[in-house]
């Protein structure tokens, strides 16, 4: 149980707080808009999970949403960040339990994750005041954020695995049929035939269940983590492109921040200062390095545009250097696996 007393750098957790406060604020604004545009759910047909007497009046619900929004804003700017985030999450959970018709897995997951983030030392960085508390802090609750992601992947994948319709592809086949007109219009004929084939739906179902199981387990092991993070980015990117599930993909991808190594500036990016591209890209990368993964250097006498040194200090040139950059930069991370495959001959750093 040493993880309960583990203390490590908390810088990245500040970004986690900002992400979840922002996502919950978006959800709160949506609920507020629904309240203004449609009748209050408590005044029409609804199905509370709590006893009916716990469902607030319209004005009570408005106050609840107001508290939720205020909590999100305070957490976003880093003022009383942790209690504000906890209050916002608890208000949201209370509202969610007042009507199961409004229940969505993605909303429930966002609220649970936000509540757990409020237990992490997430108020030490990314604050409006610009103050940053250096040093280590207890990280036990960050592990719980990771565990919460796993719970969702496991519940979802095991549910599908236990369902004969899902395993056979019968659930995906009608979904693929919905995409047929688009595919027939923009893609070669073969693709449309593929989407209509039961064997393809079965293979896609097995791949989807396998992906979720991989994500549930692989994120915890250093040897498989980066590959699983890449798989997760693609998986949620695909969901975001093909289905409308509110903030689900953004919620899960934000949660991946807890799997980032807490220690900062362990890698080095060295740019050729003589070339304008080196100066411009060096400055851009330094600005975009919100996770503080790199030490940024501009070197005059360097032969190549970029030299990246990994954690062990090993230098990488050419495509390998860009691969190391992509590995630790969220905006470039989707490029990591293609670059890894292109540079597969190089031995992986120990």
């Amino acid at each position: 149980m040493s993880w309960l007393s583990e203390e490590r750098d908390a810088h990245v957790l500040g970004l986690l707080r900002v992400a979840f406060a922002g996502l919950l604020l978006l959800l709160t604004l949506r609920l507020g808009r629904e309240l203004l545009q449609a009748p209050y759910f408590g005044d029409v047909f609804h199905m509370p999970l709590l006893p009916e007497s716990f469902v607030p009046s319209r004005s009570g619900y408005s106050v609840l949403l107001g508290c939720q929004a205020l909590g999100c804003v305070l957490a976003l700017i880093g003022v009383w960040a942790r209690p504000a985030l906890a209050v916002a999450a608890l208000c949201g959970l209370y509202g969610l339990f007042c009507d199961r018709l409004q229940y969505h897995n993605n909303r429930y997951e966002l609220l649970l994750l936000t509540l757990l983030v409020s237990f992490t030392p997430c108020d030490r960085s990314f604050c409006w005041s610009g103050q940053r508390r250096l040093g280590t802090a207890p990280r036990w609750a960050a592990r719980l954020v990771g565990a919460q992601l796993v719970v969702v992947y496991l519940a979802s994948s095991l549910g599908k695995l236990a369902d004969a319709d899902w395993r056979s592809g019968a659930v995906l086949l009608p979904r693929f049929a919905l995409a047929q007109p688009f595919v027939e219009r923009y893609l070669p004929v073969g693709f449309a035939q593929l989407l209509g084939a039961p064997w393809f739906a079965h293979a896609a179902a097995v791949a989807a269940i396998g992906s979720e199981l991989c994500l549930a387990l692989g994120l915890w092991f250093p040897a498989t983590r980066v590959l699983c993070l890449w798989l997760g980015v693609m998986f949620h990117g695909g969901i975001e492109l093909t289905a409308h599930v509110e903030l689900f993909s953004y919620t899960m991808l934000s949660g991946y921040l807890v799997f980032v190594t807490p220690e900062l500036h362990e890698r080095t990016l060295s740019w050729n200062a003589r070339r304008p591209a080196g100066r411009a890209l060096g400055s851009l990368c330094a600005r975009l390095d919100v996770l503080a993964r790199f030490r940024h250097e501009q070197v005059d006498g360097q032969a190549s545009l970029l030299i990246a040194r990994d954690r062990s200090g090993k230098p990488h040139h050419g495509l390998s250097a860009w691969r190391e950059l992509a590995r630790a930069s969220p905006p470039l991370f989707p490029l990591w696996l293609p670059l890894r495959l292109l540079t597969w001959r190089e031995r992986a750093p120990s």
Binding site: E109, V151, A155, S156, G159, V171, P174, R175, V245, F248
Partner: peptide
């Protein structure tokens, strides 16, 4: 909550995403 949700028809709290088409 998940165990309860799996036994309810609408799977509330059960995290059963994309369970049917």
């Amino acid at each position: 909550g998940i165990a309860w949700g799996l036994r309810t028809p609408d799977h509330t709290l059960g995290f059963q995403m994309f369970n049917e088409t």
